[in-house]
Nucleic acid binder design. Structure first.
Lengths: 340, 340
DNA sequence: TTGTACGCGTTATCAA
DNA sequence: TTGATAACGCGTACAA
């Protein structure tokens, strides 16, 4: 049955509206917009004029429905207020934007249940690909993902079994490297401050333990772990408590720079000499680390590159290719500064 | 003609697949998921089991297409690495999430052309509502928006003509208030540091000028404006240059806290006494302001509340209601601390 | 409570 | 270069 145009109050213009105005068929308008070279220049110009005049905007839902390609990538990250993931997003965007992929950002809030809920919701957009943070997704998520045959790349960490596509670096190796640096500098009572205790923090803690155990001086009672959200204030209160409970500590490995900046502030306000009385190290090398007083020793993480490489790998997978290397280790750099 | 199911390799499960498995019609499955109370419990349970077994995920495109409601809201912000907008997003999310609206985040990068491009792209999702940052959208954007009859709420600033829906506070009044605070403290040669020079920064500058002009001591040559991106490093280099060019300045109004923290760092490293030799003030009251040495005087901005209120207003508009108050002034607070 | 018929706006396919 | 036709997967309207 031929289409009979409905007389609704004022709906958005469609391809048919543009086609009617120009006096061509809808498919010609579609081609004028998507494959302009396949439409004569005269017609094309009249079509583009009509598109402007009517304020026509293509309807992505219709396109997705019929072409079964959404040109959409879902990215799940734990937090929007953490520079690390924003930098990663920038890398992702720089790769996908030129290819006209839309990015749907999901903020999991470091919450596994929420991550699973978000994923299910976002799957309804029929994304062409998915980028996930970390590798500790629940079995439920794995099941959904396996059924849908949508390419997935994991960011930040590495898969010990190398069974999934992933781009990142060894958080544990980085934790060990930073701890060894402290040991080399002569510190013996090295504390570890961990907040939020997500996958990556716990891997850094594992690296810390490993290095101290190898040196034969690991002590469980020099670890302060809290599920609280990280922040400068938290770092300040943690060092206050730690110095009271274990005054012998002479160095602190903070699981991120925010905590470390809090420790530095506390030391400055309380006349604790850094790095003489206490060495302080952070993780990530945020903007503030190089500007702190004293400047902060930390681990520089390749987060922009991780986003960039993960998106590139995903692009490859979405084109039906198999990446040569399913696991990319982008490594890290020890940034030694005044605080140690 | 009745639908004939295609035999494709392995597509995602559809309502029909679930229906076939259970032995009911597709519409019954649809009802079981959307209005469960209208389906008998026995059938519903079998349907839910089949949904799980098949890994069925509803197709949003199809739903949007047929119902002409996308349950989607587009939010355009200038930057993801600025805490201000992340906090705003949190407020938006807390309102829209419970109503099952999806948020599409567009990052304009403080670029008007990019904002317009992004908007056009995102309009293809047929959003039910739009949240924009600021009020300086191009004429092109206004035209598109007017044609589509999609509710729009502007965030952060206020419309002088009160012709558009907006939630924010007067950036100019805040700039004036902070400047008056410096004058009250006895500072006379008050400099202004502006970076990136977006709409809001220029309004703060206008407030700064207004206050100094009212005091009869405005000097054009104490303004340092740069289109560069803001940052701690930039603040440090700006104060270095300013002190060299105009050694008489005794206070600095930085257009945001990042610049101000850079100024503080520079002063600390160069033995410049704050606030005795130089007063320093920022804008926004970020986490670091209260932890700086000395603590930083700044303007606390209600950014979470702005997001919350803007989303609430949009929700109202999307339901077809007309908000009682089209313009909400959420005001600001002067946070006086040690640096002044 | 359940089902049938139809169309949402677009593109793939095939034909002219 | 252009067009006719048929889907894509779902919800609305109506019927049983």
């Amino acid at each position: 049955m031929p289409r009979k145009p409905k007389e609704r109050a004022s709906r958005a213009a469609t391809l048919h509206d543009v086609a009617a105005q120009v006096g061509v068929s809808a498919i010609t308008v579609s081609r004028a917009l998507n494959t302009p070279e396949r439409v004569s220049e005269a017609v094309r110009e009249r079509i583009l004029a009509a598109v402007d005049a009517l304020g026509y905007v293509p309807n992505r839902s219709a396109r997705t429905l019929v072409s079964s390609r959404s040109q959409t990538v879902v990215v799940l990250i734990p937090s929007l207020s953490n520079t690390v993931f924003i930098d990663t997003l920038a890398g992702i965007n720089d790769v996908l934007d030129p290819h006209h992929y839309q990015i749907l950002i999901g903020n999991t809030g470091y919450d596994d249940a929420r991550e699973e809920r978000l994923l299910r919701t976002y799957l309804s957009h029929a994304p062409d690909g998915i980028l996930l943070t970390g590798l500790r997704q629940s079995d439920g998520m794995r099941t959904w993902l396996d059924k849908l045959h949508i390419p997935v790349v994991h960011m930040m960490g590495l898969d010990p079994q190398a069974q999934r596509y992933c781009v990142g670096f060894s958080q544990q190796a980085a934790g060990a490297a930073l701890t060894q640096h402290l040991l080399q500098r002569g510190y013996r009572n090295v504390a570890f401050f961990g907040a939020r205790l997500d996958e990556r923090v716990m891997q850094r803690a594992a690296g810390y333990r490993q290095a101290l155990q190898e040196a034969g001086i690991y002590r469980e009672d020099l670890e302060w772990l809290t599920p609280e959200h990280s922040g400068i204030g938290l770092g300040a209160s943690m060092i206050a408590k730690a110095l009271q409970q274990r005054p012998e500590i002479d160095a602190v490995f903070c699981c991120n720079d925010d905590l470390a900046l809090g420790v530095l502030t506390y030391c400055q306000r309380n006349g604790i000499a850094v790095p003489q009385r206490l060495a302080v190290a952070g993780f990530n090398d945020l903007d503030g680390a190089a500007w702190a007083t004293p400047t902060l020793t930390t681990i520089r993480t390749p987060r922009y590159d991780i986003g960039h490489a993960a998106a590139s790998m995903l692009l490859d997978l979405m084109s039906g290719n198999t990446p040569a290397e399913p696991m990319q280790d982008l490594s890290f750099t020890l940034q030694a500064r005044e605080s140690t």
